[in-house]
Amino acid sequence: MSLDTVVEDIRDEARARAEEIRADADERAEEIVSEAEADAESIREEREAEVEREISQEREQRLSSAKLEAKQARLGARRDVLEDVHEDVEGAIAGLEGDRREELTRALLDAAVDEFDDGADLRVHGRSDDESLIEDILTEYDDATFAGTRDCLGGVVVESEASRVRVDNTFDSVLESVWEDNLKAISDRLFEDQ
Score class of each variant (00 low, 15 high):
110 D>M: 07
156 V>Q: 06
139 T>M: 04
112 A>F: 01
9 D>A: 05
146 F>Y: 13
136 D>K: 08
1 M>P: 06
33 V>K: 11
148 G>V: 13
65 S>Q: 14
33 V>Y: 03
36 A>W: 02
41 E>H: 04
99 D>R: 09
70 A>T: 05
83 E>V: 10
81 V>Y: 14
123 R>P: 03
125 H>S: 15
168 D>F: 03
46 E>P: 03
156 V>I: 09
148 G>E: 14
37 E>H: 02
25 A>V: 02
152 C>V: 13
34 S>E: 10
125 H>F: 14
135 E>Y: 14
193 D>N: 06
122 L>Q: 01
147 A>N: 00
124 V>T: 00
18 A>H: 04
144 A>V: 02
150 R>M: 08
189 R>W: 00
33 V>D: 08
79 R>F: 05
99 D>C: 00
86 H>T: 05
145 T>E: 15
64 S>T: 07
132 S>D: 15
105 T>M: 15
70 A>W: 00
180 E>R: 06
117 D>F: 12
157 V>S: 03
121 D>W: 00
75 L>E: 15
171 F>T: 07
35 E>N: 13
48 E>I: 06
190 L>K: 13
179 W>H: 03
41 E>L: 11
74 R>N: 10
194 Q>F: 04
141 Y>L: 02
186 I>V: 05
145 T>S: 15
31 E>R: 12
134 I>M: 15
35 E>C: 04
66 A>R: 08
111 A>S: 03
138 L>N: 06
186 I>F: 01
40 A>D: 08
112 A>L: 01
17 R>S: 10
150 R>D: 11
134 I>D: 14
160 S>H: 11
48 E>R: 05
14 A>N: 03
30 E>P: 08
79 R>V: 05
124 V>L: 05
115 E>L: 03
155 G>E: 07
25 A>P: 02
41 E>D: 14
179 W>S: 13
12 D>K: 01
156 V>S: 09
132 S>A: 14
134 I>H: 14
37 E>Q: 09
181 D>S: 10
133 L>K: 12
118 D>T: 08
109 L>I: 10
157 V>K: 02
191 F>A: 12
72 Q>Y: 13
71 K>H: 01
92 A>E: 04
163 S>P: 03
60 E>K: 15
16 A>N: 00
190 L>Q: 11
43 I>H: 12
67 K>F: 12
8 E>H: 12
32 I>D: 13
116 F>L: 12
24 D>K: 02
46 E>V: 02
116 F>R: 15
171 F>Q: 05
50 E>W: 09
136 D>C: 09
70 A>E: 07
93 I>E: 09
10 I>F: 01
53 R>C: 00
23 A>C: 09
38 A>R: 09
169 N>A: 04
128 S>N: 11
156 V>N: 07
165 V>P: 04
181 D>W: 12
29 A>G: 09
49 A>C: 01
191 F>E: 13
22 R>A: 14
183 L>N: 06
46 E>L: 04
13 E>S: 03
168 D>T: 05
92 A>Y: 05
61 Q>C: 04
160 S>N: 04
67 K>I: 10
85 V>L: 09
42 S>N: 15
19 E>F: 04
46 E>I: 01
28 R>F: 12
167 V>L: 05
110 D>F: 00
71 K>F: 06
